[in-house]
């Protein structure tokens, strides 16, 4: 083979690979675009004021809304964050600052396993430990399930973000006569703040859309509810329930709910992106 032919063959091969990877990249985006197309065409018409203000209509009746499920999702995510974020951030800081121990390696490994655990398993676990103990489905049980989902995600991102803080900055604190704790709290955490916040937001967006852990913990509720010890509705639960129902009106509302849910996740992701771009306040 002549040099020129070889050269030409290499260029062709390079172009072929570029095209293939380009197609792969496009295929990744296609599902999201299709999801949006479907959601908007099927769900937008069911989006009206009633959807955000009314309770679900009784089975078979038209109209109604998902106001209680919106509140439910908000409360579930709120309490899950309240329980999970302090523990996860604390654990992440520990792993980054003092995690080169046997305990650290063990916790890191467990967190990775938890990250890969199917969410339905988390649901069963919380059902066995919280629902059975309390004797009822509840907002509390649902929040615990979501908090368990959130823990490993936020722990690991916090660890990564704290590790990214330059050693010089840490030494600057130590050199001023700060204790290790004060250096971590006053110097390291502020420097890692935007990264940690982003990790928290991504995790919150993720658990806001979880359905499986809520099936036998929060359970669902057709009425207004906000008490911790009562079953509560959530958007993903209603989507599931409405989508498998035989009523066209419920199907449309399920599409609308899905649109709202993905809009929520998108909004949180955009805030997270914004935070990344402004590393210091």
């Amino acid at each position: 083979m002549t040099t020129i032919a070889l050269h030409r063959r290499r260029i062709l091969f390079s172009r072929l690979m570029l095209t293939l990877t380009g197609i792969a990249a496009f295929v990744v985006v296609v599902p999201l675009l299709l999801i949006f197309y479907y959601l908007v065409t099927a769900g937008a018409q069911a989006l009206n004021l009633d959807f955000f203000t009314q309770l679900p209509a009784p089975a078979g009746e038209a109209g109604g809304g998902m106001a209680n499920a919106l509140l439910g999702t908000f409360l579930l995510v709120f309490y899950a964050g309240l329980m999970g974020i302090p523990i996860a951030v604390g654990a992440g800081v520990y792993l980054a600052e003092a995690g080169n121990t046997k305990l650290g390696t063990f916790v890191r490994f467990i967190a990775d396993v938890m990250n890969g655990t199917p969410s339905i398993v988390t649901g069963i676990f919380v059902w066995a430990w919280v629902v059975l103990m309390m004797g009822r489905f509840s907002l509390l049980a649902g929040s615990v399930a979501l908090a368990v989902m959130l823990l490993p995600m936020v722990t690991r991102t916090t660890e990564e973000m704290v590790r990214l803080v330059p050693r010089e900055l840490k030494e600057g604190g130590m050199a001023l006569g700060f204790t290790r704790w004060r250096t971590t709290l006053g110097v390291v955490l502020p420097a890692a703040r935007s990264g940690i916040l982003t990790g928290i937001l991504v995790a919150l967006a993720r658990i806001a859309g979880e359905t499986a852990p809520l099936l036998f913990t929060a359970f669902g509720n057709p009425f207004w509810e906000w008490r911790l010890n009562e079953p509560i509705s959530a958007l993903p639960l209603l989507i599931y329930q409405y989508a498998i129902s035989p009523y066209d009106d419920w199907h449309r509302q399920a599409w609308a709910a899905a649109l709202v849910l993905i809009g929520l996740v998108l909004a949180i992701s955009l805030v997270a992106r914004f935070l990344i771009r402004n590393p210091y306040r």
């Binding site: 330059p166 010089e168 900055l169 600057g172 050199a175 306040r281």
Partner: peptide, 11 residues
């Protein structure tokens, strides 16, 4: 007190 090679003001 100590001043470092690379300036390291707190954020």
């Amino acid at each position: 007190g100590m001043v470092f090679q690379k300036s390291n003001p707190f954020p």
